[in-house]
Amino acid sequence: MSTNDFDDTRGGDAAAVPDPAAAGAAAAADRDAAAGPDAVAEPGVDPAFDPALAQAILDAQPDVTRRLTIDGAVLFTAWGLAWLVGYLLLWFTGRESADDTAPGWALATFFGLLVSAGVVTAVHIARRSRGVRGVSADSGLLYGLSWTFSFIAVSFIIGGLAQHGLSGPQIAVLSNGVSCLVVGALYMAGAAMTRQRTWFVLGAWIAAVGGFTTALPIAQLYLVMALAGGGGMLAAAVLSSVRGRSTSRGGGPRADGGRA
C-alpha cells in the first residue's frame, strides 16, 4: 500500500502533468528514502505517534492560523500609531499659527506617517495571503481596492473644493471629516464581510469621532483625532489581539477558519 502510494506520486502525476511541485516531490522523496529514519516514505499509521505530541500539534493551531490569515491587530496598530503621532504633531505645531492650521512640514510628516501605515498594511497582507486563493482571498482583494478607490475619490473631492475657493482651515476640517466617514464606513463594511464585531465598533466610533470633531476648533479637532481616533484604533488592536487569542484557544477548527 505504502509502496504503491509512493510510486503513484513519482510515476503517475509527475509524469502525466508537468507539475514542478510533483516533479520536485519525486526527487525529494528519493532523497528522503535515502536519507534514513527521518524520511516518511511510509504513509501508513504510525503506532509510535504519541497522542500527547498530537495534542501539541493541535494546540499549535493558533500559530499556524496567525501565519496564514490577516491579523487585524497588526493593521490597527500601524494606523493607530500613525494617527496618534500624526495628529498630535498637527495639534502641537498648529497651536502657534493664527488659524490653527499646521505648517507644511508637519502636514508632510503626517502624510508620510499615513503612507508608512499603508506600506505596513500592504506588506502584511501580501505576506500572509501569499499562495492563498479562494472566496475570502477574492473578497479581500475587492475590499482592498475599495479603500484605494475611495481615497482617490476623497483626494479629488478635496482638490476640487479647493479649486472652488475653499479656505485652508475649511479644507483641513472637511478633509478630516470626509476621511473619517470613509474609514468608518469601510471598517463597518469590512465587519459585515468578516463578521468581526471589533471592526464594526471601531468603524462606528471613527465615523462618530469624524462627525463630532467637525464642529470643533481645529486645534481641538486634531487633539481629539489623536486621542479618540488614534487611541480608538490602538484599543481595537488590543481588543482584536486578545479576542483572537481566546477564540483560537477555544479548540476545534472553526467554521470561519479562525479569522478573529
Binding site: V40, P43, D46, Q61, V64, L68, V132, G258
Partner: peptide, 22 residues
C-alpha cells in the same frame, strides 16, 4: 494520526472554508 498528516490538516484548517493554499 501521523505527525505529517496531522500538521497538514491543521495548516489547511487555518484557511477559511472556500480558500486554497498553493
Amino acid at each position: 494520526h501521523a505527525p505529517a498528516r496531522l500538521r497538514i490538516m491543521v495548516a489547511l484548517a487555518a484557511l477559511p472554508a472556500g480558500d486554497q493554499v498553493s
